[in-house]
């Protein structure tokens, strides 16, 4: 007898559980859909400021950056993604000085660990959240971060800058 009652109770609890499952999907049928419609939503898309997708070297309006070409970032990068190519020049007062010639960064080799930014003593580089980095060719992933003809920002001059305007 017990096996018969087991047979039927199994049948009915089974059916009940299935109906419960269907009630959940029925409810979900009417809930708000969560798909994000990229690229239509580009204007409203919020990407966190902290999102790391592209290393940049901010330049100011005088085309000056803060990189002293010290090479600390290059040394700290675990993947050899950064190449700091420097130049020796002679300043007006006859001293030798190292300046930045090319700052190369290869997006394809970067693991976005943020060590370069953390360790840079001059805060010369930072990550931007511009995430649309797809290109057709690996060569295009190699970027030069310092602009053409840019130079090192003179630290002492900095407070004067607003006056100059």
């Amino acid at each position: 007898m017990s096996s018969v009652s087991k047979y039927f109770s199994g049948l009915f609890t089974g059916i009940k559980s299935l109906l419960f499952g269907m009630s959940v999907t029925w409810k979900e049928l009417w809930t708000k859909k969560v798909t994000r419609q990229y690229p239509e939503n580009r204007d409203t898309l919020v990407i966190s400021d902290r999102w790391r997708s592209e290393l940049t070297m901010p330049h100011d309006e005088n085309n000056e950056h803060a990189c002293t070409a010290c090479g600390i970032c290059e040394m700290n990068c675990p993947n050899g993604t950064i190449k700091v190519i420097s130049q020796m020049i002679e300043t007006e007062d006859g001293k030798k000085k190292k300046i930045l010639d090319k700052y190369q960064w290869d997006l394809g080799m970067c693991t976005f660990c943020n060590l370069c930014v953390l360790t840079c003593p001059s805060d010369a580089i930072k990550f931007e959240n511009t995430f649309e980095n797809a290109v057709f060719n690996r060569e295009k992933l190699k970027q030069q971060l310092n602009h053409e003809g840019s130079k090192l920002r003179d630290k002492k001059k900095e407070p004067l800058a607003p006056k100059a305007e």
Binding site: S48, W51, R52, T111, C113, N114, N129
Partner: peptide
């Protein structure tokens, strides 16, 4: 996804959060 959004806002990564 909601947790990943929180990660993204906190540390700029979703899966590899550093």
């Amino acid at each position: 996804e909601i947790i990943l959004d929180i990660f993204e806002k906190t540390c700029g990564g979703r899966l590899i959060i550093n």
